[in-house]
């Protein structure tokens, strides 16, 4: 997959300002050819602004970026020829059938007609929508729609694919399917993939490298493993005890970071290794009975929280679908 260290995306001092407000404050990073690059950050961190600048939807206030070897400031038209954007709002027209949507897409990208019908067949087959090709997209489920979005990749033959929250609002099966397809596209065609997501576990499993953005800046960037190591947490232990007694105080004294989760239940963050044994030892010494215990290595979610804090952000990015989806789920809807 990763072809020897050629650069697919190179960002230098990219800035986006709206009046006094700096949404992106001069970020610099690069993505290697063939990489799956995860771009994480809380709502309003500047992710969408960045992706919009890289896909030429927004003109940067300062700095530049080259995508597939072409400057987004200098020749945005050429960049557009070489990329594919799959955004969270979706871009397929509900009144057209799957096939019609893809044909329209191919014509926008100037694919020769003969070649186009071949590519449409192949694309629909790849996303398992061949038998529903003549159905108007408004009758599709969310997962089918998202798969149809992915099919665009096979029409225009892009060098770099930008996916903005590709799995948001989907059920676990569809999410799994979408990620599988992303992985397959990357594997089979060696296409560079730039993806933003809120699903940390998914990012962790699939991305070669991950950048975390917050307040318009990139605050951490590395492989998932290195990021997990980098926060200096050995283990996270969640423990429930019968009576607290001296347990809580003994833990703090031993230098653990203790966070109460509920009555008699704590999350203990242990630096280095051997955290479980030490927690059990302290419990025994203080005569505390452990009812339940769960120990795990730090996940991407812990890394994310470590860098961006636990404070909830008020999403200010336009069209923040996540907020809407969460609100709908909270109301007990679909």
């Amino acid at each position: 997959m990763a072809k020897a260290s050629k650069t697919a995306i190179s960002v230098k001092g990219l800035v986006k300002r709206f009046g006094d407000l700096s949404a992106v404050k001069g970020i610099t990073f690069s993505v290697k050819e063939g990489e799956i690059f995860g771009f994480l950050g809380p709502n309003g961190a500047g992710k969408s602004m960045t992706i919009n600048m890289l896909t030429t939807l927004l003109v940067p206030t300062g700095g530049d970026a080259t995508v597939a070897g072409v400057s987004v400031v200098g020749s945005p038209e050429t960049v557009r020829e070489r990329i594919c954007l799959i955004s969270q709002e979706g871009s397929v027209d509900g009144d057209l059938t799957a096939e019609e949507n893809l044909v329209f897409y191919g014509r926008l990208y100037h694919v020769p007609e003969k070649e186009l019908s071949r590519r449409v067949d192949r694309a629909l087959e790849f996303v398992n929508l061949s038998d529903r090709r003549a159905t108007r997209v408004k009758f599709y489920s969310g997962g089918m729609r998202r798969r149809l979005e992915m099919a665009k990749v096979f029409i225009s033959d892009p060098k770099v694919i930008f996916l903005d929250e590709p799995t948001i609002g989907l059920d676990p099966q569809s999410r799994d399917m979408v990620w599988k397809k992303i992985f397959e596209i990357n594997r089979s065609k060696g296409i560079t993939i730039f993806v933003t997501t809120h699903y940390m576990q998914e990012a962790e499993g699939l991305c070669n490298r991950i950048a975390i953005m917050d307040h318009g800046k990139i605050i951490a960037m590395d492989t998932p493993a290195a990021l997990r190591e980098g926060i200096g947490i050995g283990e996270i232990v969640e423990v429930e005890v019968r009576h607290d007694g001296a347990f809580h105080r003994a833990l703090a004294k031993a230098g653990f970071e203790v966070e109460p989760l509920s009555r008699n239940k704590y999350r203990i963050t242990a630096k280095g290794s051997g955290g479980v044994e030490r927690v059990v030892g302290i419990a025994r010494k203080s005569g505390t009975k452990i009812i339940n215990m769960l120990a795990r290595r730090p996940t991407m979610e812990d890394v994310f929280m470590h860098y961006t804090g636990r404070e909830v952000r008020d999403g200010t990015e336009a069209g923040n679908l996540l907020t809407k989806v969460l609100a709908r789920n909270a109301r007990g809807g679909g």
């Binding site: 557009r80 020829e81 954007l85 709002e89 979706g90 871009s91 027209d93 926008l108 990208y109």
Partner: peptide, 17 residues
């Protein structure tokens, strides 16, 4: 409608004038 549904963005990122 196209703007609200995001369909319009498809045109904006397409390599056409």
């Amino acid at each position: 409608f196209e703007k609200q549904l995001g369909v319009f963005n498809l045109l904006l990122v397409a390599p056409i004038d």
